[in-house]
Amino acid sequence: MKIQKSIARDIPEIFRLYGLATDFQKLTFPENTWPTFERELVEREIQEERQFKMIIDDQIACVWAVTFSDTQIWEERDKDPSIYIHRIATNPDFRGRQFVNEIVKWARGFAKSHQKKFIRLDTCGNNQKLIKHYTHCGFDFLGIVRLKNADELPSHYQDTDVCLFEIKLYRV
């Protein structure tokens, strides 16, 4: 297994995995599923070296993106030096291999190399299975919030509850 920055020629596979993840969400938690994301979003993340992939046996097994700011979701807490993980999508051929644990290991080094003190992620809706999964992977569950302003966020954030998670890397 290796983790690399995604490149432009990965875009079709990234969108295939997003589609498969959305199909899986419809089966497991239909109350809140991903919308179709804009190609420009992924292109920008790749150009800014914020889109990543996990490779196993020369196949993309998992993808995710990171940001360094997430004001509309994290509000005042966004002032904390953090990385935010978004859109983890796993290739179904590799499902069940605990990739979030591997992403957390990677994110610890990535965050420290960028002088960040927190690794954060969120999920929409009160999805108890995901809450349990993310806490099992080392995240502290900070609770469920209703966003005050989600106008610049994708549609799945509109008028829904959001679960917040973080890993504190060292005392702040």
Rank of each mutant, 00 (worst) to 15 (best):
R50I: 03
R16N: 13
R87E: 05
R77W: 12
V145H: 14
E31Y: 06
Q115P: 01
A65K: 09
K148L: 15
T123K: 13
N101T: 05
S6M: 09
S155E: 13
W34S: 08
E38V: 10
C62S: 03
V42I: 14
W64S: 01
Y134F: 15
G143W: 14
I167Q: 06
V145Y: 15
L130C: 06
F94Y: 07
D93M: 06
E76Y: 07
M1G: 04
I131R: 14
N126P: 05
V162C: 04
M54D: 04
I73D: 02
Y18L: 15
E38G: 12
W106F: 15
L17S: 02
F99S: 15
E13L: 14
P30V: 07
I7C: 09
I14E: 02
E75P: 00
Y134D: 04
Y157L: 15
P81I: 02
F68T: 02
N126M: 12
H86A: 08
V104H: 02
Y170R: 06
R120Q: 06
A107E: 00
F110G: 00
V66P: 00
F52P: 00
E48W: 04
R108D: 01
Y157R: 05
L153Y: 10
Q72H: 08
D70R: 02
I55N: 01
D10F: 03
C137S: 14
W106A: 10
T22Y: 08
H136E: 14
I167W: 06
K117E: 08
T33E: 04
F52Y: 15
R77I: 03
S113L: 04
K2S: 10
K105Q: 06
T90N: 01
H136V: 03
F52H: 09
T22C: 11
K148R: 14
F15S: 08
R120H: 06
E102S: 08
Y84L: 00
T90S: 05
K129A: 09
Q59V: 07
S113A: 02
Q59E: 13
G125A: 05
C137Q: 09
V66S: 04
H133D: 03
I46S: 05
I3D: 01
L121W: 03
E49G: 11
R120L: 01
E13F: 13
V162W: 07
L20Y: 06
